[in-house]
Design a binder for these strands. Structure first.
Lengths: 396, 396
DNA sequence: CTACTTTTTCCACTCACAGGACAAAGACGG
DNA sequence: CCGTCTTTGTCCTGTGAGTGGAAAAAGTAG
């Protein structure tokens, strides 16, 4: 098919598109219940949307007691590409316009290989998804990168863990290659959008989404909108001091949260423990794999290894301490914990909760859920699809 | 005069009122340059505003080369009352509709005496201002209280330093007494609004406003709007842990920022130092006054007293450390330092700056001014007037 | 006094939208 | 099977907001 290029012509159409995206097929009458428009006006706007091809008829709706109505839905042939570039792997997914994941693949890849190599990989993965019949082309793509982004231009700025990406015109380059509109954002922000769209944060206006992976970041949502800060580096909590005069960090300071707890720090601590003979479990895993990662620590903890549990608990305490500060400051309605270390599960969560509930004031914590993300590795790509759909479903 | 009760009838009128508030008298043509409306539409809306009495004619404008235009301005008889209830004193000011302070008085008062006693004082001060001819009555009042507020209802919730205020219907009670609309907010938020309206933050959309007085709080402005959090306690940074296992705090924890640096903590430390004979300067002041406050420390520091300087420097370091974390998290475009301890001046500022610039990443600090508030004790009352004017100049 | 600007008013025209009337299509009871 | 009721979809007209051009009003500059 020819790719869609139409955009909503006004705010009403944008509203309707978003309702159809979030609510699935709907009759005109049901839409009318949700927007404050006269039936005539609604009919006009729906007709225009049908003309653009963004929306198509979709059979009869269930009867509500009288004349049955015809459903309409977003064009089922629309396809969005969601790309989540992590520090050590790339996730790519295809969704329809309702942001349902149709296919999702993951490939290990070091982001430090630079934008050219990474994009080659991303394009190959996109081609693979296309070849498997899930899409003939893409109507838009959202890209998440593990570092701060100058959002309007879609360009990474001074990303600490992505040497070689600074100033690279990601948005422009990928838009060219994919032949469709592209939006770029920090991967943590996308995770927050993902959990907001389809995960635990569906009903919350103000929340924090802490992602603990190779590094540590935090998505900030204010009034339902992602807050990115003055230079796009908001939520960069990995380098908040967690331990006075603590471990040296790559950033040049000491005691950064990231230096004490993150995928990388955890692997290092586990290796140390294994080598010092503190944990038979970890040592045997080291023997087998030749290396240790956060996954090994999670497995060891699941097997009841005391050292692994202690590592997780201590890391959780550190993280919880920082989050407690953020909770006092930001007073969110929800805190979501996600990222690669979600596998550490409830040991981690319990440690974080303990710190936050102990250190922050009751008014801020009284009704504050602290939960694990619901979507796991899909949060990023769903958030990416959501990002581009928000863009495309806004008036031009 | 009869008090104004009119409100703008639509968003255009609201926009015009705010332009006149912030820009002073303006001709229709000048207003036309700032709003995106046709001349005819503009004329209609201005006429309606003139009819309501909110706006009046104000002579001829300066020539711009052609026909001279007639200025219009907000009714100069409109009066707002700004009230800033601090922990240890009350500020009350009268402004006109352009938020220019016409009179400002301050009275020491302990907020712990409870809402009834405090309001008696506030009403007496308002009466005094009225009696001095500055106002015949008030068209609206903004109230700042030193604790979290459930904003829509204007009711303090669980305020730690204001026993007896929890759940007291401040908005309703004062509205009754003053006979005009009232809005209530946290005093720190009002300080932020004040600096935004008439101080250092005029051009910044996202900034933090740290107020160090008896306690420590932080106003958060996102996209030009004050962010209050889910339960109204956002910005409550006084109980963020600044020193692991540090001093015990009234909140039950240890090492809270407020326990280590605030007006109260500074007075306590100064007293200790004086009694231990570490500072002749402080000891002599203790002799004279029978007590020591932050003001004495400021004076001693200004006189070059090493102990006082050290106290300030250490407090600034602690505060700077916490602010550094907030800067990493929030990535503001500006940090304003204000409150009672502003008298500590550049010694304090230098200590804070050092910590922030050292601990936060360059991307966040690169272009980040950290400055003292410009308005001093007037910030709160101006912010209060701004709060109620924002409310009254919005469509009903 | 003349030519040119700027401001203000006036007016006709467009357009979005509401809301009623009516037709279409089904549910349901008899 | 038929008539009545309910819901849905379409048509149409009235209304009010708003635009933009023309012209009048009131200046400035030379």
């Amino acid at each position: 098919m020819r790719r869609m290029t139409a955009r909503p012509g006004n705010a009403h159409q944008a509203r309707l598109l978003k309702l159809l995206r979030d609510g699935g097929p709907n009759s005109r009458a049901q839409l009318g219940d949700q927007v404050d428009l006269s039936r005539s006006k609604l009919a006009v706007e729906v007709d225009r949307l049908l003309e653009t091809g963004l929306v198509v008829a979709d059979g009869l709706a269930a009867s509500r007691g009288g004349r049955r109505s015809h459903n309409i839905r977003l064009n089922p042939e629309l396809r969005f590409l969601g790309v989540d570039i992590g520090a050590t792997s790339v996730d790519v997914a295809v969704t329809n316009a309702e942001l349902e994941t149709l296919g999702h693949i993951n490939h290990p890849m070091d982001v430090r290989e630079g934008p050219v190599a990474v994009f080659e990989q991303v394009l190959a993965m996109a081609a693979k998804l296309r070849a498997s019949g899930l899409a003939e082309g893409f109507d838009g793509a959202g890209i998440g990168v593990p570092g701060p982004v100058r959002f309007p231009e879609g360009i990474p700025v001074a990303p600490p863990i992505m040497p070689g990406w600074d100033g690279f015109p990601v948005r422009e380059a990928l838009s060219q290659e994919l032949g469709c509109p592209v939006m770029v954002d920090n991967d943590v922000n996308l995770m927050a959008m993902g959990e907001q769209h389809a995960g635990v944060a569906r009903t919350v206006a103000d929340f924090l989404c802490v992602k603990i992976g190779t590094g540590i970041g935090c998505g900030i949502v204010v009034g339902g909108e992602v807050y990115r800060g003055t230079t796009g580096s908001a939520g960069d909590i990995g380098h908040i001091q967690a331990v006075p005069d603590g471990r040296p960090c790559a950033c040049g300071n000491r005691g950064c949260l990231e230096a004490h707890f993150s995928g990388a720090a955890l692997a290092r601590d586990a290796l140390e423990a294994a080598q010092q003979g503190l944990s038979a479990e970890l040592a045997s895993r080291l023997e087998t794999n030749g290396d240790l990662t956060a996954v090994d620590v999670a497995a060891a903890a699941a097997a009841g290894d005391a050292t692994a549990l202690e590592l997780i608990r201590e890391g959780g305490n550190r993280t919880g301490q920082v989050i407690a500060g953020l909770v006092s400051f930001f007073n969110p309605g929800l805190v979501v914990i996600g990222g690669g270390v979600t596998g550490l599960g409830h040991t981690l969560l319990a440690a974080i909760r303990t710190q936050v509930y102990r250190q922050s004031l009751p008014l801020a914590t009284g009704n504050l859920p602290i939960v694990l993300g619901e979507l796991g590795p899909a949060a990023g790509v769903i958030g990416a699809a959501r990002l581009i759909s928000d863009h495309l479903f806004s008036p031009a």
